[in-house]
């Protein structure tokens, strides 16, 4: 017989922490980034997303912007962070979830 103790488990387990994460399911699972918007960095105003999704150029005035204030089209943003230009999303996930329970 092999060492039976090797199958014993330490008492430190994860349920409490995980439950916090999983209780958040339903909130985070639909966590599309509603706060990210495309901004014209010349005047820090919100512009249509298509300008930020343009991947044909490496330099552009259009950058994604997160946090802070100013969300409506044409409004001025402040207090947030400017991200990178040319980021496209939605290129993964077309097949949906991968199954039912326990597969």
């Amino acid at each position: 017989m092999r060492d039976q103790m090797k199958r014993h488990r330490a008492k430190l387990l994860a349920g409490g922490v995980l439950s916090v994460a999983v209780i958040g399911w339903g909130v985070t699972s639909c966590s599309h980034d509603d706060h990210e918007r495309c901004v014209d960095t010349r005047d820090n105003t919100v512009i249509p997303d298509q300008y930020c999704q343009d991947t044909s150029t490496t330099t552009s005035y259009a950058h994604w912007y997160r946090g802070g204030s100013g969300f409506k089209m044409g409004s001025r943003v402040s207090g947030g962070e400017t991200g990178e230009h040319g980021v496209v999303r939605g290129g993964f996930g077309g097949h949906g979830g991968h199954g039912g329970h326990g597969g």
């Binding site: 599309h32 991947t55 994604w64 997160r66 991200g83 990178e84 040319g86 999303r89 290129g91």
Partner: peptide, 20 residues
């Protein structure tokens, strides 16, 4: 993060999360 929200930065040629 959801895989649907993964971003691709074509200029830099790398994937980014929701915080870039």
């Amino acid at each position: 993060l959801p895989i649907e929200q993964v971003g691709w930065n074509a200029a830099a040629k790398w994937f980014v999360d929701l915080d870039q």
